[in-house]
């Protein structure tokens, strides 16, 4: 995989409310290019919302988002999202299109590639996730693990500078989780900048460079995996870890 020259992502003082529900209350997150940041925390802590704010699927009420040190809040959000790949808990593949079309759609329509060019590129991406032989299948005929790997290929096809994973293995049967996590670990070691919202503490500890623990819409603690998992400073993180480990 080619080395990516950009992708340092910073969120500064991000606030978001849905009505009176304050989902994010001043989040700071910095992800250095080529590193993997995992975000952990209980359900409803705002982790998944944070990802959606960082790629402006939801606009923040306050705060700034910087990519390579430059604020992207004034940019066209569609342009921003072409630079950030996203993988969802429920895969969200397009069920009316073949696996190949799922991967090549954005290449043809947004990158303006010819059908042949897009096809080649999509097949190469499917190769990378080990599913080239499923190119003509419909997503509905794949297992959950296969669907998620197609979703990863779909996001990677756009050559994103950053990849977001929103609980990418939470909807998978236990025996399929390993394959997807292995693929994510491969991506991380190939130098992709990644933000991974996850309940997989093993992955978080072994693969990520930094771990951010969120609770109640704030970052409670953040640091390298060793200090987060082996030396938690706050009672909230300690009690969370004792619940999940």
């Amino acid at each position: 995989m080619k080395t990516i020259e950009s992708g340092t992502l910073t969120g500064k003082g991000l606030h978001l409310s849905f009505g009176t529900n304050r989902v994010l209350r001043g989040i700071d997150l910095h992800v250095e290019r080529g590193t993997t940041a995992s975000v952990i925390g209980p359900s409803g802590s705002g982790k998944s919302t944070l990802l959606r704010v960082l790629n402006r699927l939801i606009e923040p009420d306050q705060g700034d988002i910087l990519l390579d040190g430059r604020s992207v809040l004034k940019d066209n959000p569609d342009e921003l999202r072409r630079r950030i790949g996203m993988v969802f808990q429920q895969f969200n593949l397009f069920p009316h299109k073949t696996v190949l079309d799922n991967v090549s759609l954005a290449l043809r329509k947004l990158r303006r590639m010819s059908a042949e060019e897009a096809r080649e590129k999509a097949l190469a991406q499917l190769d990378l996730v080990g599913l080239r032989h499923k190119a003509d299948a419909r997503p509905g005929n794949l297992s959950g693990g296969q669907q998620q790997r197609v979703a990863i290929a779909r996001a990677l096809a756009m050559d994103p500078e950053v990849m977001f994973f929103d609980e990418a293995t939470s909807a998978l049967d236990p025996e399929l989780v390993k394959g997807v996590l292995a693929l994510m670990a491969d991506l991380a070691s190939a130098g992709m900048t990644m933000v991974v919202v996850t309940h997989e503490m093993g992955f978080s500890r072994n693969v990520s460079d930094t771990v951010t623990f969120m609770d109640g819409g704030v970052v409670v603690e953040s640091g390298p995996p060793a200090s987060i998992f082996d030396d938690p400073q706050t009672p909230r993180l300690r009690s969370f870890l004792s619940d999940v480990l």
Partner: peptide
Amino acid sequence: EKGQLEASRALGFS
């Protein structure tokens, strides 16, 4: 499903 619109927007489609 809402996720379909979300996935499409996340790819960069308007």
